[in-house]
C-alpha cells in the first residue's frame, strides 16, 4: 500500500476477481463519461474536429454502446458474485449499513472539527465507502434502465424518452462528479497514499493503513490470528501430552 515501508506486512484488500471487476468498471465508466459528455460539447470545440467530426461522432456512439454493455455485464456479474461466491458474500456482509456507520460519521466529523482526539475505529468498509458503493448501485440502475430505453427509442413514447434523457444526463453528471471528487481525490490524492492507492492493482493494504483507516477490522484479524495460533499451540501441546 502506498505511503509505507515495503517490508511492512500487507493485508488483502481486494481479491483478483474484485480487481478485475474494478478495472472493467473504471475503464468502461471513463469511456462512457468521455463519449457521453461529447454530446454536450460546446459548438466551437466540436467544430475543431473539422471534417473528421462525422467519423468521430459515429465512433463515439459505437464506443458508448460497447462500454455500456461492458458496464452492464460487470454489474450483473457483481450481483452474482456477492450472492453466490464466498468472497463476494463476505464482501456484501461487511458492506451492509449498520447503526455504527452513523455513529462513525458523527464522531469523524467531530474529530475533523477538533472536538475529538481520535478518529473512530472503523471496520473493513468505512461509512463513506459504503455510501459510495451503494450510490453506484443506485446510479447504475438509473443509467442502465434509461440508457436501454434510449437505445430502443422506437418502442417508447416521446414523453418517457424525454424523462429518460433527463434522468440519464442528470445521473451521469452526478456520477462523474462523485467519481472525480468523491473517489479519485479522496482515494488517490489522499495524503496517506498519494500519488496512488495501489490496492486496485496489487489488491493489498499496508498494516499502517489498516491501523489508520480500518483499525477495527485490523484488530479483529489480529485477534482471530492470535486465537488461531493459541488453538494450534494448545492442540500441539495436547497432542504431545497424549503421546
Amino acid at each position: 500500500m502506498g505511503g509505507h515501508g515495503n517490508n511492512e506486512r500487507a493485508f488483502v484488500r481486494l481479491t483478483k476477481s474484485e480487481r478485475i471487476q474494478h478495472v472493467i468498471l473504471f475503464v468502461s465508466t471513463g469511456l462512457l463519461i468521455l463519449t457521453g459528455f461529447m454530446l454536450m460539447g460546446e459548438v466551437w470545440a466540436i467544430k475543431l474536429f473539422g471534417s473528421a467530426g462525422k467519423s468521430i461522432f459515429y465512433w463515439r456512439g459505437i464506443i458508448h454502446r460497447v462500454a455500456a454493455v461492458a458496464v452492464t455485464a460487470v454489474c450483473f456479474y457483481h450481483l452474482y458474485y456477492v450472492l453466490f461466491k464466498t468472497d463476494g458474500k463476505s464482501w456484501i456482509r461487511a458492506m451492509l449499513p449498520r447503526l455504527k456507520d452513523g455513529v462513525d460519521a458523527y464522531q469523524n466529523v467531530m474529530y475533523m472539527l477538533g472536538k475529538r482526539d481520535e478518529r473512530p475505529k472503523m471496520d473493513r468498509f468505512t461509512y463513506l465507502e459504503k455510501l459510495e458503493y451503494f450510490s453506484v448501485y443506485f446510479g447504475m440502475f438509473i443509467v442502465i434502465s434509461t440508457g436501454t430505453m434510449m437505445w430502443t427509442q422506437s418502442y417508447w413514447p416521446k414523453f418517457y424518452l424525454d424523462v429518460a434523457d433527463a434522468l440519464h444526463l442528470g445521473e451521469a453528471t452526478l456520477a462523474a462528479l462523485a467519481i472525480i471528487v468523491g473517489h479519485i481525490f479522496t482515494v488517490h490524492y489522499n495524503p496517506h497514499v498519494y500519488p496512488m492507492n495501489k490496492a486496485f492493482i496489487d489488491g493489498n493494504i499496508s498494516e499502517t493503513m489498516m491501523k489508520e483507516e480500518h483499525s477495527l477490522w485490523y484488530e479483529r484479524i489480529i485477534a482471530e490470528e492470535a486465537s488461531k495460533s493459541a488453538n494450534t499451540a494448545h492442540a500441539t501441546e495436547g497432542g504431545h501430552s497424549n503421546a
Partner: peptide, 24 residues
C-alpha cells in the same frame, strides 16, 4: 515528475468538474 503528472491530472479533472457544474 510525479507531482507534475498528478497536478496536470488534477487540473484536468477539476476543470471537467467545473464544466459539468456550469452545464448543470
Amino acid at each position: 515528475l510525479v507531482h507534475l503528472v498528478m497536478l496536470t491530472i488534477g487540473i484536468l479533472l477539476v476543470s471537467f468538474s467545473i464544466w459539468l457544474i456550469y452545464l448543470t
